[in-house]
Structures are given as structure tokens and as C-alpha cells.
Amino acid sequence: MTLNNGSKKSGGKIYVVTSGKGGVGKTTTTASLGAALALRGQRTLVVDADIGLRNLDVILGLENRIVFNLVDVAKGHCKPAQAIIKSKKSNNLFLLPASQTDDKDVVSEEEVKSVLDQYRREFHYILVDSPAGIEQGFKNACSGADSALVVTTPEVSAIRDADRVIGLLAAKGIEPHLIINRIDAEMVRKGDMLSVKDVQEILGIDLIGVVERDDQIIVAANYGEPVVYNPKSKAGIAYQNIAGRLCGEMIPIEDVLSDTLWGRLGKRLGIG
């Protein structure tokens, strides 16, 4: 494997997956999208930038294969090719794990950027899983990114944090795309949950995907196998579609509401 210093023009695209608020599904999104891109034959690297609180390795079931990590590459303790781990399921998906024993300040923004640039030539897509918050860890994760995937759930607190992050990304000149995660069609229909349209209206950025709440996500995480390998999972299909849109395919955003019982009935009766 030859690794050169890539420029923005040669090599793959770097996306930072971020949200501001914790627990909205950044890591799951990174793992699932990475797997979905790999399924499309795109050579993909997922990077865990959550130094000290790494999770991405567990979600991908690779925790027992880690030898070197992002910090080792940044400090020159190993070669870039030595630190990445091939996934169990795909020859196209690789993980660059975070260090679990350091903290966020151990690497600088410039160091992370230079690490990512070293991998850029070798991959079509690099997805960087950002830690929650807007401090050093977030800044590090954004440092090499060309674009951002902002994950939010349809809750006011998550939306407000996403809004804050979008403002910070704009200041850095990183273009944000929105993923609305864990939407519940039944609750939206009853008016108990903000709809996709509501969230879009507040945040006002390009929507690239809507992922419905799906218990399969938890099952998949426990087995260390991304949900996209499950053809019956709605969330899995949603991530496949997002991967398609990232690759430039024109896939319409799923209409969550039309999939409820009432939506289906309406369609059948010709009123939907």
C-alpha cells in the first residue's frame, strides 16, 4: 500500500459525522454508512475521532484486533497502513481506531488533518466519527473534512445542538448535510413528534437522509455487524439510500408517513 500526501483534489472525500449532542446516533451512522458505501464497492475508511471514549470498533466488532490507532499515526509511532483494520464483512471497509488511553488534547487539529490526508489517496470515502460536544475533539474531527453529515433526532434539544454545530461548521467553511435519525412515523402522525418537515424548517440545510427508529440497530450493535447487512431492516435500507445519495445517485427521500397503516390505507383508497 502506497500512501502519499493527498491534496483536496486527488483522492477521496472526507466527511465528518457530527451532531453536537451525544447519543443521537453518530457512531451507528458512521458504521452503517461506511458498510453501505463498502457494499457499493467504494473503498471506505471509517475513523474514530472520539479519543478516550472509542466506540466505533465495538459497533464494527473489531475491538480485539486493534494494535495501533490514530494517535500512533499522528505521532509517527507506526506507518499509516499498519493502523487501519479491515472489517470482518467487507474487503472495502477499514477502521482507523481511536486511542482509548489518551485524551482529546493529545493531538492537534493539524496532526489529525495530516493523518487524514495521508489516507485520502487510498480511499473513495473517509468518514470521521466526531465526539459529542464542540470542544477540541470536535475541532479535531472537523479539521480535515470537506463536508459534514449532521445527525439529529427529532427532539428539540438535539435540534438546538445540531443548529449550533451547523453554525460552527459554516464558520469553518464545511458544507453540512442533514440526517434525521430515529424518526417514528406513528408518533409523527399523532402529532407527538416533530416531522421531517419541521426539523428541516428549523435547520434549513440540505437533507440527505431520514432513518426510522429501528430495534434492529441495537441487535446489530450487539453483534458488531452494521445494520445494512440486514435486508429487512428499515434503518439498513435508509443507510443504503444515504450511501447512494453520497455517490451522486438521485434517490428520493423516503416519505416516512406514507408507510404507516393509515398512510398505506390512504394510498390504497386513493387519497394518500
Binding site: 438546538r160 445542538d161 443548529d163 449550533r164 451547523i166 453554525g167 428549523i202
Partner: peptide, 24 residues
């Protein structure tokens, strides 16, 4: 512009915003 969470605009004069002022 849209003012997003965490952003603050202050002026001793009137302020006109073509955009939203979001929560926060």
C-alpha cells in the same frame, strides 16, 4: 443569514435580519 444557536448579534442601532433567528 440565519442566526443559529449560540450566535449573538448586538448593535446600538436597529437590526434587520433576512433569515431565521433560531432557538438559542
Amino acid at each position: 443569514t440565519t442566526l443559529r444557536s449560540g450566535q449573538k448579534i448586538e448593535s446600538e442601532h436597529s437590526i434587520i435580519i433576512f433569515g431565521d433567528v433560531n432557538s438559542g
